[in-house]
Amino acid sequence: MSILVNRETKLVVQGITGREGEFHTRQMIAYGTNVVAGVTPGKGGQKVIDEQVPVFNTVREAVEQVGANTSIIYVPPAFAPDAIREAAAAGIALIVCITEGIPALDMVSTFDFVQDYGARLVGPNCPGLLTPGEAKVGIIPGNIAIPGPVGVVSKSGTLTYEVIDALTRIGIGQSTCVGIGGDPIIGTNFIDVLDLFQQDPQTEAIVMIGEIGGTAEQEAAAFIKANVTKPVVGFIAGQTAPPGKRMGHAGAIISGGEGTAQEKIAAMEAAGAKMAPQPNDIAPMMKDVMGI
């Protein structure tokens, strides 16, 4: 078991003929992900990636003709919201948007649209998902992960890789790794993923990596306290960031009293999570809480 992506995933890549789309499609196929289709309007009928993947003009065709159930989006920011809507309307259940730099306001109506169709959106501006040994939907390097009992959920990209790599090095594998993204409006938040991990029989413990800015970690802490019985090890990046400075992710801004690392750490600790002082401590602490 795992969450959201696995061997049943039938992936359609929106923007497959772009530079990023093509590069990462190769990586995903090399990892063993079942990539059933690509979509680039106007290029339908072609076969790409060494003639392996059929390209369609619309997501609807990819759903009807090859049964795509999951979509990954690598299209530029100005067109990504429309690509997300197209996937939702075509009946795709899980839409993962990697695109960075989408105007935040576009995501307000886009998220609402996705909800109307009952689809789940992960991202945007996220590294996607990886279920080790089964499916890679996104850009998380596959070689650093091994299958196992720890669910990883994070707002950031490379910091997550750091943690996955450290877990793997001490022999602790992962059930699924989910990068939810750091934009102001994201489709799937910490709580959604924590809930899925709590219900997933393979997942025995959870790593949660947050950042300064917003209140998503405090809300996650409340959820953990009320609903999560599996052990949680956490880390909050930006403990030393000066207030009022925006640090890369739109998520990473603190001003006034909302969203400091200290508040988040306190909330997580009060919920029973073990909080790591630095990323290097996460893997050993996980070993400790799992009693292995």
């Binding site: 994070s154 707002k155 950031s156 990209g157 490379t158 910091l159 997550t160 750091e162 750091g182 990596i209 950042e211 300064i212 880390f235 990046a237 930006g238 403990q239 030393t240 960031a241 640090m247 890369g248 992710h249 990473a252 630095q278 990323p279 290097n280």
Partner: peptide
């Protein structure tokens, strides 16, 4: 590379 890792680097 990466905002989260950059913040974590400063923290460490």
């Amino acid at each position: 590379n990466g905002a989260g890792l950059a913040m974590a680097t400063m923290d460490v």
